[in-house]
Design a protein around this nucleic acid. Structure first.
Lengths: 223, 223
DNA sequence: CGGCAAATCGTACAGCGTACGGACGCGATA
DNA sequence: TATCGCGTCCGTACGCTGTACGATTTGCCG
């Protein structure tokens, strides 16, 4: 069942790359709290301490995993329409963070950015500068976009359901009864509406993103 | 040095309230990773297992701590100007999350909202509904505002420096050398500008917040 | 073959969350 | 007053964690 089969033994030699990829897979499958050095080593058909020849710490492992997630994000394409470039990048980033929902929670404790993360920050900043944002406004825009992206991912990760089908059942069975309709009228109203119309994280994200992009374009024009 | 002095013994009896407050103080002082049940109990002048009569799990402890932080946030005042109401709430929320920077990282793993958290969500939704947002748009606005708030707090928490004075030294000593100016021209440009002008998280937050509030007001009017 | 460096791993240690069961004090009941 | 139940407290123990240390194995070069 667990993936360490890969033939009969851990033949292919360990490497940072291989360790990181397995760690990512394990976190995806069992959650970040289930990722321990011993379990990871077992999956790789190795002893626990062998991992430390490819990774200084568990911290370094986690750093690498986050950077791997960022490497999945499509870089913003250099094109005439800066809004389209940023939009594509943001949608891709949200999807990646949703695929690996443990990653966003790791970011708070991680202070050093990996190469993939840096490359994205650089590319985004370049798009903004090219679009005509002065440095200072480009910085503001960058903070705003990153904040929205990370915050949305954080909320999405902390939702108690995974897919759209879980949503209906969960809301009806857990949320609404728990919510006193007299204490929280507006929230219950919102929950019932969401229950009827369904809930699509990607669409929700796009809605706010477009609002922000419009606002930034106005900001750019009067710069 | 550690705060368990409080006289000569742990005279005042334990209570969930007291446990939570101490836990919050410990996390503020030593970081969330330093918060263990044993250490917390020692600070309270109690045995480790005594805590479990006031808290089911460490999970429940963390839930309670997060809710305590939310209780520090000023509820949006019901006033004519919905933008001012939301603005005050958001600024207060960002400040609280910055005071307890461990809180935002906890949110990813926490799915159940405490009473203080629920009250804020309800109050914010009520302000939006009263301002004339239809249900669906109010939900969008709520997601957008929460996302920006949480994302900003997350970024602020993951900055490698604490105050404005650390910032200058850190940037000069760590960031810029690490950043190859040829590989990351836009980022180095941004860093040098920030270094000159200084960096104020509260002001940065307000900038993006006002952009969002303007965009939402436009959204509201054409609803 | 010898030898050396890199890679692997067994053992051990301190610390973690917490299950379990016992000890204590206190108000209600007989 | 004696007994009971109950809420609170806590000592001990178990299985797990990250990882320091030193021994062993492996692979390559002469």
């Amino acid at each position: 069942m667990s993936a360490e089969a890969e033939g009969a033994g851990g033949q292919e030699p360990l490497s940072k790359e291989r360790v990181l990829r397995r760690a990512l897979a394990l976190a995806d499958a069992a959650g970040i709290e289930a990722l321990s050095m011993r379990k990871l080593a077992r999956e790789l058909g190795a002893g626990a301490m062998s991992l430390y020849h490819h990774v200084r710490d568990k911290e370094e492992l986690l750093d690498g995993m986050v950077d791997l997630v960022f490497a999945e994000i499509a870089l913003p394409e250099a094109q005439a329409d800066w809004q389209a470039a940023v939009r594509g990048w943001a949608l891709s980033a949200r999807a990646a963070l949703a695929r690996h929902s443990w990653a966003i929670g790791l970011m708070e404790s991680r202070t050093a950015s990996g190469p993939a993360t840096l490359r994205h920050r650089e590319a985004l900043m370049e798009v903004l500068r090219r679009a005509g944002f002065p440095v200072r406004r480009a910085i503001h825009a960058n903070w705003l976009l990153d904040s929205y992206l990370y915050g949305f991912a954080l909320q999405e990760a902390s939702l108690p359901f995974a897919g759209a089908e879980d949503f209906a059942g969960m809301t009806e069975a857990v949320f609404l009864p728990q919510l006193s309709a007299t204490d929280y009228p507006c929230l219950t109203e919102a929950a019932t509406v969401l229950l009827q119309e369904g809930y699509d994280p990607a669409a929700e994200f796009a809605y706010g993103l477009d609002l922000i992009l419009d606002a930034l374009e106005r900001d750019r024009r009067l710069a």
